[in-house]
């Protein structure tokens, strides 16, 4: 096993069982991700992209197969170890944002840092910096329900970056965002990637996917193709 593989999945399957009906959301998916890669996962709706991402983010467990994160078998980790990995190693951006309701943007961004035991003053200054970076310096005290979809998306991004995670997993980070803002997000991801962070994002759009270095294509729960981006796009924005 190459030591540079930060993520290694082998024959992963996921079966959802809803009242006797079984959905095979993932079928024997195997691939590896090296440290510092920037991957886009593409595929039609319902093909299993989010399911795969949740497993990669240690938010869900596969029905079968093995998932090694940084060389550790995730299925053998304790609940607390998993919590710490989700907290510090992985920054997860949900397709549905998942902000705490009725809670300010600032507080939302602070939350993972609170669980990491970072002091309040430091949490606040980091959160302010992150929100400014995603262009929300004037919306810090708005609660989640007072923000637009795109603004919530950016709060979720800021939150995922709050502990400077090695791996950033983003489920359609630009799905609710205008093109100009999507460009900004890509600039941030490319910057993070150039700093050494491993970035994996799901997207439906080819020009967003072209910001990555490698594209995985999933159809009906199967990994259909895995190839490098031929003509990579670079965001011209400075972040």
């Amino acid at each position: 096993m190459p030591s540079s593989a930060i993520i290694s999945v082998k024959n992963i399957s996921k079966i959802y069982r809803v009242t006797d009906v079984e959905t095979l959301a993932l079928k024997n998916v195997s691939f590896q991700v090296n440290r510092g890669e920037f991957i886009a996962i593409m595929g039609p709706s319902g093909s299993g992209k989010s399911t795969l991402m949740h497993i990669l983010g240690a938010l869900d467990i596969p029905s079968s197969g093995q998932y090694l994160l940084d060389g550790m078998d995730v299925s053998k980790l304790s609940d607390d170890q998993l919590a710490d990995i989700r907290n510090q190693k992985i920054g997860f951006i949900f397709q549905a944002f998942n902000l705490l309701p009725r809670t300010s943007a600032l507080k939302n961004v602070c939350l993972p840092m609170a669980y990491a035991g970072i002091s309040k003053a430091q949490r606040l200054s980091s959160a302010i910096e992150l929100l400014t970076r995603v262009g929300l310096s004037d919306r810090m005290y708005h609660t989640s329900n007072q923000l637009s979809g795109g603004q919530q998306q950016r709060v979720a991004i800021a939150r995922s970056l709050s502990l400077n995670p090695t791996i950033i997993l983003a489920d359609e980070p630009t799905g609710n965002i205008a093109t100009a803002q999507a460009e900004e997000i890509m600039a941030i991801f490319q910057k993070l990637n150039s700093e050494g962070h491993t970035v994996i994002m799901i997207t439906h759009e080819q020009d967003i996917a072209d910001h990555a270095r490698r594209i995985l294509f999933i159809r009906d729960g199967k990994l259909e193709s895995d190839h490098p981006v031929s003509k990579r796009r670079f965001s011209k924005l400075k972040v």
């Binding site: 949900f94 705490l100 993972p112």
Partner: peptide
């Protein structure tokens, strides 16, 4: 849901 989210963000069970 709130607990799911808190766990996703790294809260330990005991917390």
């Amino acid at each position: 849901r709130e607990i799911g989210l808190r766990k996703a963000l790294g809260a330990r069970k005991k917390t």
